[in-house]
Design a protein around this nucleic acid. Sequence first.
DNA 1: CATTACATGTAAAAGGTTACATGATTCG
DNA 2: CGAATCATGTAACCTTTTACATGTAATG
Lengths: 178, 178
Amino acid sequence: MIDIRCLCLGVLSLGDATGYEIRKRLKDSFGPYQGMSYGALYPALAKLLAAGEVESLDGDRVSALDKRTYRLTEKGRESLHSSLIRAKGQEQTRSEFLAAMFFADMLDRDTLDRLVDERLAELRGVLAHFQTYRGSPPTEGQRFVGRFGQVMARAAIDFLQGEGRAIVNAIERDRKAR
Amino acid sequence: MIDIRCLCLGVLSLGDATGYEIRKRLKDSFGPYQGMSYGALYPALAKLLAAGEVESLDGDRVSALDKRTYRLTEKGRESLHSSLIRAKGQEQTRSEFLAAMFFADMLDRDTLDRLVDERLAELRGVLAHFQTYRGSPPTEGQRFVGRFGQVMARAAIDFLQGEGRAIVNAIERDRKAR
DNA sequence: CATTACATGTAAAAGGTTACATGATTCG
DNA sequence: CGAATCATGTAACCTTTTACATGTAATG
């Protein structure tokens, strides 16, 4: 399973980083396909440190709040590799948007339009994010994720602007006909 | 927020059901876009019952394991409606597939092919699922979700069979060139 | 000098999964 | 009569979010 620890190891495999940077790089790389909150991140790093899968490059931290840079160890690299080869081709989406749209017949026109508009805004953000690949030339893996993200965002936008909007309009027509 | 309790209310808004049936109908409607385990479902139903948002149609249950059919109450319908109008157009995907592909450069050809094949198999299942809409004529909301699911699955399949596979092949070429 | 970005952590609570325990009904 | 499906529930565990507490460094 790919959990937060595994993701930390993965980001660190591309270069040393602080906890804060790990989270940022993950967001830059995956956009909406992976998230990470500090409350999960720092405990995960502590566990990785205790397990010897990462090492801290700062021996002389005075306070527990001082900046700390992590590096992947050989043990960590092996652990990451063994997680990756056991990974399944799974994907799990929990969509508040679709859940609400499913009950569209209970909702008024304004709410439906708002839901679609919000979804479109987010998707356009995702598309722009993946289109402007900043920083160093990406690995092939990064390229794969970026292209996949673009294609899926594009497909969702096209649907919502065309057929999706048409279904919403049909709901409204039905209501008026009644 | 759309949580498991809200989903139960939503399913029940389309007709009375047992806990088991609620889970089944949700899977039928949303495919991979919503899941629900029994360990979350039954405690959620108990809370809804205590809150008076659903009622039990079986007064005379001898054992706690006897079948029980739930019905949405007026209070439950209001609660559902107020959740829906507060819903955001959000969607969150956690993709073990993309996480693994991101580190494609660390993986061998066989693993990459397996990941793509597994993803394709799942997506084809999703597509088939949404294409064969069984049962009673769907509400417009159901139609929306079904069409959205089809479009997104189609886009992902096309990508993986074309450009995605090409990137995987490029990785292999790079490796051989080294 | 104020704001934004950088930076680390803890504690409580929510939310969910997995495994387990138990049994009835239906269909070939 | 055996297997699949239907059916309900608990408990232990895991992960993650949210809110809080605490600063430093860079930038306009």
